[in-house]
Design a protein around this nucleic acid. Sequence first.
DNA 1: GGACGATGTTCGGTATCGCCGAACGACCCG
DNA 2: CGGGTCGTTCGGCGATACCGAACATCGTCC
Lengths: 256, 256
Amino acid sequence: MIRSVVRAGQILKELGSGAPRLGVTELSERLAMPKATVYGLLRALEQEDLVERDAETGKYRLGPAVVQLGNAYLDGNELRARSLLWADSLAARVVEAVRVGVLVGANVVVVHHVFRPDDSVQMLEVGAAIPWHASALGKAIVAHLDPADRAALLEGGLPTLTGWTIVEPERLAASLAQVGRVGFAVEDQEAVVGEAEIAAAVFGREGVVGAIGVAGPAERLIGEGPHSDVLAAVREIARRVSKDMGARASAVPHRH
Amino acid sequence: MIRSVVRAGQILKELGSGAPRLGVTELSERLAMPKATVYGLLRALEQEDLVERDAETGKYRLGPAVVQLGNAYLDGNELRARSLLWADSLAARVVEAVRVGVLVGANVVVVHHVFRPDDSVQMLEVGAAIPWHASALGKAIVAHLDPADRAALLEGGLPTLTGWTIVEPERLAASLAQVGRVGFAVEDQEAVVGEAEIAAAVFGREGVVGAIGVAGPAERLIGEGPHSDVLAAVREIARRVSKDMGARASAVPHRH
DNA sequence: GGACGATGTTCGGTATCGCCGAACGACCCG
DNA sequence: CGGGTCGTTCGGCGATACCGAACATCGTCC
């Protein structure tokens, strides 16, 4: 595994998460690499416009080339392409926002987002990264991973986002088992206070490829329990997208 | 300059432009690298989720991590942040779509996009990459670069997108000189038939940092000449954004 | 069905080239 | 003016990336 490239990737990720402007020294500390090494990697990344430096502070940040790459990924993403129409119909049916996400590392990255069909101003969340355990999308995906991968994700110290975030591995594991049984995942104010989400996994030819879910105010999606209409709609749409993605019926867990 | 990282960057860019799925052999030919080298680089990139492989064809494509990076870049981008409100007001004033872009290599990447204020369905173009010479944004930026950089951009074989695309270096150079004199750039169906754009450069503390422009149907923006109201609005907004970006008055070309 | 072509993958020796400790210089702050 | 911090440079050692060539694997065409 060629080391400099892996390290360059780690630098990019570090610049992409949290503080968007970091100096050489700060990066070398966070990533436990010698300062001179980080410097060399940054020079190379800068040449490719993957990183640029702040004119006045001299600190480094992501460069414009990454936007182009992100856009290109979304253009070619099969899950996104096959979700487009289904997500629209789901949003119209439940009158809430719909999100489609994939797992990258310990985060869920939103690859498609349909606004709630009303005239309120909403922020486009495509590209947003959310810790998997604080998202219904993430739980739906992780619940269907190999046990080994799942266990690894339960280990790393999971951050607390709100007072409702579940970070204890035991409780999360139990929650995931439940997801596996019922075929959907719920998140109730675990990422943002007042916001909830109901999601179901989407499968491809070989296992889970992502998840689709409905997000909205907690009191509307979840009262005494998950809103049953929404829940049925999410499960149905997830199954249809899975079919479009080429999932064999046997690979998609089904109940009753 | 550390070679493997630069090469990895070139691989990412190649995957991000044109055919979104490429094999090892195809990449090695396009980038003139040995096959085994490309293979090693791809393995490293794959480990970092910057690249993933198609399940059935085995070919490589960009990975989900790049979306997260793109989003992070946009979040931290000063030009974008300072353009948000001005772009909205510009769109409302001229009732057309507004785009903000920066130069990366020989392309303009759109970092902000305000829809035309009507109810028509429009595609979000944030992240789109357009050859600089086929875009008013690009011409506005390049016209204010160092002569050396400008000359370099005029050299590389410029692609033809429509019958109206200007690819001859002499004609382009003349056009850029004109842009420098009048303070705005025009593009008339040079990227997409029927579409035109009027743009002006935005300056920061040390030179041009991007451009902002109005895009719409050619017959509405440009009849016998650029629509004068639009033109005035674009120039005014570009100047205001430049001021917000910390441009010294002396650095912003002004006329009359 | 067998052979061919194309493509992905592995291997191993060589010399390249990245790695990193340490020193230098630039800058800020007190 | 002196101490501290940070970005940058240097240089020599040695790990390791590089790449030609062989191998494996698949699809395809007689």
